[in-house]
Design a binder for these strands. Structure first.
Lengths: 338, 338
DNA sequence: TTGAAAGCGTTACCAG
DNA sequence: CTGGTAACGCTTTCAA
């Protein structure tokens, strides 16, 4: 099955004995074309099954109608939902998305940015890896004038639109809820200290404690890199405490689920002995037993918002709209674990 | 932040007072270039931060190094894992993937194929919607000579590489397992009759029954469109039977999970009263209680295989390798539900 | 070893 | 209303 010669406007022109300029005009609805000529062109185009070559068009317009989306891992439901939201938002305006996974590696993230830049995407929507601390690449994109949107794990150092989760409020609300349930020794399974989202959630937690006159106990906080080893170590440490926690609050659902399973394996009653709460309302939180109380996030909406921001930039390209930071609001979903 | 003028080889040529031909040669490692000239060009390229324009290159070579991936829904863990596998397989060879979701709509699937064809992707990896019965679009791609790989929900009517799940064997093994557990009234929650995967799984089920001398009972089979309504109706119907099933086997995990929850809500003991089994080993199956016995599939591997097939076609473009159908083998994962 | 020019498929401008 | 030609950025002959 050999690839056919692609039909071009020149083929149409030749068949019709007219110039390619006229064919082009007819095809692009340019008014300066004799109706009969246009009709003939359109018919011939159909007959020959003509397909315009977007590559040539892109070359002229310096516009590919492709957006680069860089995420750590498409297999995480959170990111998959965001991607879906982005696609549905920008798809309506005829933009396609090239998805690149960084696999949580700053190095791969860098390579992806390079490659997509060479592919001449019209803009980037980026969620950094949990370990990205050097933002030179995205800054380089910014300097080159690429439309940029940062989401979830954002780059704070650039005045670009950002869409984030309801970080502070989420942990504040969840902690408050646990306190209302009578818990006083509330542990926190946190994330890397350098991540903005992680910082804000941590602050939500400490703020709730402070406002309720509960002393902050450094021993009850564990900073993780979102790895299973970290969770296990934290739980072990907490349970060995002379005064173990009566609640464990986490800043991410996968961690909460793991905590839940570790506690159950040790025969600890949930929520009687220890209450557990997550963050995100990941599909899995409704399936475990007891159901996990968690602060709902809407990743699909985050994607939608990020996509809309991108369309805004793309539309009024060179105007400087004040870059806003959009928070996708969430709400507490109370289940059996608290 | 205005987009800079893109640096081209002409800029380099002008700065150096040489022709763009020479610059091109130097940049492409063409041997016919004076080493000194090359060095100067390379340095200048670096100084000016020259980025080759892939668009121009693509136009010349009629090759974009982009692959179109069409899936029903990226938010399903199964498809997300496949996408990940595809990307990791083809990424090594410098191919990028444009992901398009059909949202299970044959119409959108068609539009996506059209759009990606216009974008001049180098090939397509396609998983059809559950409702796709008309394969004109993919046949059109085939006729135009596009490299094609079909996976999971395949098009059987074309001699192209296909990668599928372990359909027959999966349901055969699972049914066999239930029989060994002493079950005799085994219900089947099946899929649409026109889907090849659905057919094969159904056959695996009936074959196992027959080989064990268990009479096939039409009443114990429910064909679904993978919708929650369908599952609820099926369970209701089965429970109302004068002789209800003692096991429910499903051809997809989401269905099994729903069955599990419906039965539990009705106070039915699992697996004592009714055993339940799924297909896929979706991450969620390990989280519900009791854990769901399910036939493990490796969607990531399916993606990897599909990607490799595509690379094969792309390499030896116009040779006709016999199109094979690859089965990604699975194995039974026994948990509490049986 | 280098330069000039053609060509990839289109659009857009300028004459006619 | 139509045709010719330049231009988009690059590679690839063909001459020199």
């Amino acid at each position: 099955m050999k690839r056919h010669h692609q039909v071009t406007i020149i083929d149409i022109a030749r068949k019709l004995g007219i110039s390619k300029s006229t064919v082009s005009r007819a095809l692009t609805n340019n008014p300066n074309v004799n109706p009969d000529t246009r009709k003939a062109v359109l018919e011939m185009a159909k007959t020959l099954d003509y397909q315009p070559n977007m590559l040539a068009l892109s070359l002229i317009k310096s516009e590919t109608r492709m957006l680069g989306v860089i995420i750590p891992d498409i297999q995480k439901p959170f990111f998959a939902a965001i991607v879906s939201g982005i696609q549905h938002a920008v798809g309506r305006m005829g933009y396609r998305t090239i998805i690149a996974q960084s696999d949580e590696s700053p190095q791969i993230e860098k390579e992806n940015i390079q490659a997509l830049m060479l592919s001449r995407v019209d803009g980037f929507l980026i969620c950094h890896t949990r370990d990205t601390r050097n933002f030179d690449q995205i800054k380089m994109l910014y300097q080159k004038g690429f439309p940029l949107v940062s989401f979830a794990r954002i780059c704070q150092e650039l005045p670009i639109p950002k869409v984030v989760e309801d970080d502070f409020n989420g942990l504040y609300t969840t902690t408050q809820h646990l306190i209302e349930r009578g818990r006083r020794r509330i542990a926190l399974l946190a994330g890397p200290k350098h991540l903005q989202a992680s910082k804000l959630r941590y602050q939500g937690y400490t703020t709730a404690l402070r406002q309720n006159g509960i002393a902050f106990d450094q021993e009850l906080v564990a900073h993780t890199r979102f790895l299973t080893e970290n969770v296990e170590a934290a739980v072990d440490r907490w349970l060995a405490l002379s005064e173990p926690p009566d609640a464990i609050c986490t800043i991410y659902d996968a961690g909460a689920i793991q905590v839940l399973q570790l506690l159950k394996k040790r025969g600890i009653q949930i929520p009687k002995d220890i209450a557990v709460a997550g963050f995100g309302n990941d599909p899995a939180t409704g399936l475990v037993e007891p159901g996990l109380t968690t602060f709902e996030q809407r990743p699909y909406e985050i994607g939608l918002l990020a996509g809309k921001h991108m369309l805004d930039i793309l539309k009024k390209r060179f105007t400087d709209t004040p870059p806003e930071i959009t928070i996708s609001e969430g709400k507490l979903v109370v289940r059996g674990s608290t």
